[in-house]
Write a protein that binds this DNA or RNA. Structure first.
Lengths: 197, 197
DNA sequence: TAGCGTTGTCAACAAGCGTTGGCCAACAGG
DNA sequence: CCTGTTGGCCAACGCTTGTTGACAACGCTA
C-alpha cells in the first residue's frame, strides 16, 4: 500500500532519503547485539550509537525483535572453492571462517543471540544447509551424508569461535591464526572427506 | 561474627533450618539460567519455581549476580581415567562429557551465561585448567602444551554442546550418542596425543 | 503557494525488573 | 515465662525497558 506503482510492485524500490538512517541503525544494532547480546542491547543504546531517536528504530523495524531479525540476516560469504584441491579443503574452510569471523561482528552477534534465546526455530540449521552445505557437497564423497558432515564441521568451527571470540579464553586468543588453522584443518578435513568413522 | 564457636571457625557449620530452602532456590536457579539465560531468568520466576518469596533469594544470595555465581560453580566430575589406555583417551573423554552434559542442566546454564555476558573474566579459563588440565596432562606428551591442548579439546566439545544442547540443531540432536563419539573421538585423540600439527 | 507524504523529536505510558525494609510466626535458651 | 534469633511473606521503592502518539520541520508535486 505504500508503493507508488500499482502495476509492478516487484521492482527495486527507489532509494529513500531515510536509507542512511536505516543503515546507521542496522550498523549500530549489529555492534550492540554482538557486544552485549540480545537483552542487554537496548534500543535506546542502539539509537544513541546511531545518533537518532529511539522512536525511529520502532518506525523502521517495528519492534526490537524485528530489528534483530534484520540485523542477523547473516551472509557467510562462502567462496566457491573452485580451484581448491580436495586435500586442501579443510584448511581453506577453517581459514575462511576465521577471517570471516574477524571481519565484522555480525557473526558473533548471531551466535550470541542464537544461544541466549530460543527464538531460532531451525533458522541456524537452514543457514548451515543453505550456505555451507553446497561447499561440503563439493568435497564430500557421500551426498546423503552432507547434512551430518556439515553439522560436524560446524561444531568444530563454532566451538573455536565461542572460545576465541565470545568467551575470549586467553589461551585461545593468544594463538595465532595460522596455529589454529594448522590444528583444526585436519579435523575439518576428516569430517569432510573421510569415510564413515 | 555470626559463628557460634569463637575458637574454631573452620569446622563444618551445623545444618540450618533454611538449608532446604537454599537448595530449592539453587536448583530452580540452575534450571532457569539454563533455560532462559541470565537476563531472561528473573529472580521472581526462580522464586516462584522454588515456591518461596523473591526476597528470600536476596537474603540468601545477596543479589542476582551472587545467585548466579553460586549456581554456576560447575563441577565437571572428571573421572581419574586411571585404567584408560592412551589410545582410548579421546573416546573416553568425549563420552564422559556427553553423559555429563545430559545429566543435568548446569553445564548448559554456565555456557549460556558465559556467552551472554562478559562477566566471566577468565573464570572459564580457570575452570578448564583446573578440572580438565590434569586429565589432559595425563595423556599429553608435552607438558608445556597442556593448556593449548586443553583449549583445543574444549573447542570441539563446546562446539558440539552448543549445537546439540543449546541451539538444538535438528541434524545434531538426531544423531545418537555413539555416532557422535565415533566422529569426535579421533579429533580429541589427536588434540591430546598427536605431535605438533 | 497550498497540500501531502516522509523524517524526525519529544514526552509520556504501562509493565517488569532488582532490591529494600518492615512485620509476623516459629523456634531456642535462660 | 520472657527474649533474642531465624525463616518467611508482603508491600513498596526507584529504575529501566519497549513502545506509542502527538507534533514540528522537510521536500516534493501540482
Amino acid at each position: 500500500m505504500t508503493e507508488n506503482s500499482p502495476s509492478a510492485d516487484a521492482g527495486p524500490p527507489r532509494p529513500r532519503r531515510s536509507d542512511t538512517t536505516r543503515a546507521a541503525i542496522l550498523t549500530a544494532a549489529i555492534a550492540r547485539f554482538a557486544a552485549d547480546g540480545y537483552e542487554r542491547a537496548t534500543i535506546r543504546a542502539i539509537a544513541r550509537d546511531a545518533g537518532i531517536d529511539p522512536a525511529m528504530v520502532m518506525r523502521y523495524y517495528g519492534s526490537k525483535e524485528g530489528l534483530f531479525r534484520a540485523a542477523s540476516e547473516i551472509d557467510l560469504r562462502m567462496p566457491d572453492f573452485a580451484g581448491v584441491r580436495s586435500e586442501e579443503a579443510g584448511e581453506a574452510l577453517v581459514r575462511h571462517f576465521l577471517e570471516r569471523w574477524e571481519a565484522d561482528d555480525s557473526l558473533a552477534a548471531m551466535l550470541r543471540v542464537a544461544m541466549a534465546s530460543g527464538l531460532d526455530e531451525g533458522r541456524q540449521q537452514a543457514l548451515l544447509e543453505r550456505q555451507v552445505g553446497p561447499t561440503v557437497a563439493r568435497f564430500c564423497p557421500a551426498p546423503a551424508e552432507v547434512p551430518r558432515r556439515t553439522a560436524l564441521i560446524a561444531s568444530q568451527i563454532v566451538g573455536m569461535a565461542v572460545l576465541r571470540y565470545l568467551i575470549q579464553v586467553p589461551t585461545v586468543t593468544a594463538m595465532t591464526r595460522d596455529e589454529i588453522v594448522a590444528w583444526l584443518a585436519p579435523t575439518v578435513q576428516r569430517y569432510l572427506t573421510a569415510d564413515g568413522p
